[in-house]
Write a protein that binds this DNA or RNA. Structure first.
Length: 494
RNA sequence: GGCCCCAUCGUCUAGUGGCCUAGGACACUGGCCUUUCACGCCGGCAACACGGGUUCGAAUCCCGUUGGGGUCACCA
């Protein structure tokens, strides 16, 4: 990471739903870039739409960033020189800016309703999709008074220059918009409430954000934001125009943007299924960026050291759950044993296999069992399935159908021999157990390993897939092991 | 429709004029290992959208075509 710099980036979500992976990817890139350049990462909330914003969503965003470990230097919760960081609390600031903009002639009153604008376009033979045609720019005082007499209140629009507008996008390079493709837009509602179109650039200006990295969906609104910036610079609210970088979309199935309705977009669903924060973040980083030609598993520290927005790939990326899970599995295996064991507990608790809080005995089992499953899971959510048998009583253990189906005709005899071999084990530990079973089943009876050990596996775990057999027996204990073998024998002969 | 963006294996990508008979990863697949499932190891399949230029030389630069996407709100 380089020395501290004056670079300031921000993440400014609108609390209108549960956190979306695309939103998180945007936060991640801003965060990593700030760390990379030694800049400042500002976190503010854009809650200017009382109709859609919710406190619950706000809390979820905080919870998400906290879970992921994406910390910020300035903003919500930590304060800073530009408080407050929730736009709903910055009304006075906006009113002041609006007055200045109005005074300098950058804003003008617009009384037309959406219906009237459309009707006007139709009447003029203009494609209604082209939107507003700036026809109220030069309304006379008489005309305004007449509208007011009708009881109408005006919205305020920004007077946008009638020229081409270019900027140098951080990920796409030079982009030019033709004059006329970005009409005068509304920045203040008739009731005086400012809109995102105004407050977003105003806050970025006031907070002196230098690099704006955001979703590609905002690309087409960039020229008009820059137009607003020019006005803000002129009235002294902005010191400079920031650089913009538009991050590629995160796509879902087919060719559509991953929507909020799509379960794969829900960050918390991934968490609940057992993604590690570091695994999910690593995968998200791969959507539009890569750390090296022959590597795709890395830590966030490594990412911060390497990340530059200039290296972001402009093409849209599809969210591939399979690959995300594979990356997560790599991180699962990278965890220190104690750390890994600790992360298993919440998933066992969610399945009600372990008490909350967990007992010491339960934690001890988790600690011992963890190494047996660390390389056999991709998601922590697989834990209950893999280790559940260690936390249920023999009576409650159920033999699953697909497990039972693996049993061949000789299973009953094999179980009898297994029980017999186990009776003679003096020290109940993995090695002696394996030695005893091998001596009896493989050497003496000549049974193939697969057939010899399969029945015991089903007996102990009730499942087709389980942690290594002998280790599992040791953990379960002699009594439970023998009781389960007997239970399966009873079940099979019934 | 106007405007804007994008275009390398099925997917994510490496590639910034010669190192490319295009590299890695996921997925798929053959094999080894093996008490199940995994892990690990070895191998395979598979791409520069198309057409013109520029150049001694193009996946890389330019133009066009086609295809995809986004955006045109008193949402953010």
């Amino acid at each position: 990471m380089t020395a501290p710099s004056e670079i300031r980036v921000r993440f400014c979500p609108s609390p209108t739903g549960t956190p979306h992976v695309g939103l998180i990817r945007t936060a991640l890139f801003n965060w990593a870039y700030a760390k990379h350049v030694g800049g400042t990462f500002v976190f503010r909330i854009e809650d200017t739409d009382a109709q859609r914003d919710s406190e619950e969503s706000y809390q979820q965003i905080l919870e998400a960033l906290n879970w992921l470990g994406l910390d910020w230097d300035e903003g919500i919760g930590v304060g800073g020189p530009h408080e407050p960081y929730r736009q709903s609390q910055r009304g006075d600031i906006y009113q002041d800016v609006i007055q200045k903009l109005l005074g300098a002639g950058h804003l003008y009153e617009s009384f037309a309703t959406a219906e009237e604008i459309e009707a006007r376009n139709v009447a003029n033979g203009r494609d209604p999709r082209q939107g507003y045609d700036n026809f109220e720019r030069e309304l006379t005082d008489e005309q305004k008074a007449a509208f007011r007499a009708e009881g109408r209140e005006p919205s305020l629009r920004l007077r946008v220059p009638d020229t081409d507008l270019s900027f140098d996008d951080l990920v796409r390079g030079e982009i030019t918009f033709k004059a006329g493709s970005f009409p005068d837009f509304v920045v203040v509602r008739p009731n005086g409430q400012p809109l995102y179109t105004l407050v977003n650039p105003v806050d970025d200006a006031l907070m002196e954000i230098t690099h704006i990295m955001r979703g590609e969906d905002l690309l087409s609104s960039t020229p008009r934001q820059i137009a607003l910036y020019h006005a803000l610079v002129e009235i002294g609210v902005a010191k400079f125009i920031p650089r913009f970088g538009h991050l590629p979309y995160v796509m879902g199935e087919g060719n559509k943007k991953l929507s909020k309705r799509d379960p794969e977009s829900n960050l918390f669903l991934h968490r609940d299924r057992g993604f590690l924060p570091e695994g999910l973040l690593n995968y998200l980083a791969l959507l539009g960026w890569s750390i090296a030609a022959d590597r795709d598993v890395f830590t966030m520290e490594e990412m911060c050291a390497a990340f530059d927005v200039a290296d972001v790939n402009p093409n849209p990326a599809r969210f591939d759950l399979k690959k995300a899970e594979a990356i997560n599995a790599e991180h699962v295996r990278l965890l220190e044993p104690e750390d890994f064991a600790g992360r298993l507990v919440p998933y066992l608790q969610a399945a009600e296999l372990v008490a909350t809080p967990a007992t010491d005995a339960q934690l001890e089992i988790v600690r011992q069992a963890a190494p047996l499953v660390q390389s056999r899971m991709q998601l922590l959510g697989e834990t209950p399935g893999l280790l559940g048998f260690l936390f249920v009583s023999t009576d409650d253990l159920v033999f699953e159908d697909d497990a039972l189906k693996t049993l061949k005709d000789g299973a009953l005899d094999v179980l009898a021999a297994t029980a017999e071999s186990l009776e003679g084990v003096s020290e109940w530990a993995t090695e002696p157990i394996e030695a005893a079973m091998r001596a009896k089943l493989i050497d003496e009876l000549g049974i193939k390993p697969r057939l010899a050990f399969g029945p015991a596996r089903v007996a102990l775990s009730g499942r087709r897939i389980s942690p290594p057999l002998f280790e599992s027996m040791e953990l379960l204990g002699r009594e439970a092991t023998l009781a389960r073998i007997q239970k399966l024998r009873d079940h099979l002969s019934a």
